[in-house]
Amino acid sequence: MISAYIIHLLILIGIYVILALALQIAMGFGGLLNLGHIAFFGIGAYTSALLTLAGWPFWLAFLASGIIAMIFGFLLSIPTTKLKGDYLALTTMGFSFVIYAILLNWTDLTRGPLGLPGIPKPSLFGISISSNFNFLILTIIIVLISYFIIKRITSSQFGKVLESIRDDELASKVLGKNSFKVKAIAMGFSAFFAGIAGSLYAHYITFIDPSSFMIMQLVPVLLIVIVGGLASLPGTILATIILILIPEALRFVGFPSSIVGPMRQIFYAVILLLILIYKPKGFFGRVEME
């Protein structure tokens, strides 16, 4: 029997795999440095939590979490369509601050800093997924479906158009590609998968508050994408496993719990520096960071 701790880590890995694969669509394939990605995760988590607390069935709330996040993704792509690189990063970071502020201050809906407790464990077609082992099975199924769809999108000719926009948007337009439409779809689907990852997170932890969706929470996800390699889906999975598991070792070194958190941040920073210096394409990336 797998221990509860291992199951917990595997579930976390699953949720982060979906979140990082989602970021790969926009950032790895589309070249869109979207620092608002964590906001889509938050939107998905809150949508699913609020709907199930209002009595909606899990599967419907789960789908709604992706769709609502996707709508925000489309909306965010409209004002940011002409932005690139640093400017896009700053604007999307602003978006994540706005969503965080809404989650914190719209207390009638979100209970603000008190958060939403008692989010029900999922139940699908009459089967309760209350045990963590069952939740792990559900997570694995959703990871596999997400991977299949994202792989299908990115390896299709549409994915190549997205990559052409990443490499040279003007040249892509000169070939007659509607880059606004393609980027909006990429941002929308990226947000969709971040949203369903948020839903899984909310129903696993059963309590969410705005602090789980601050920009700092995006750091490990960004790191996974960079370490795994831009536009590499297998690299993303490998990097997620490594980057979730290695900091866990800190728990067994004997550091006091107050130090483990900051140590984890230091670990991420060191990994990021080493990768950028010695392996700028990440594990399996074809695309160099610019």
Partner: peptide
């Protein structure tokens, strides 16, 4: 990428 623009049709590609 140059030969046609069917590749920007998302659902068709999916």
């Amino acid at each position: 990428l140059a030969i046609c623009n069917e590749d920007t049709k998302f659902w068709k590609n999916l």
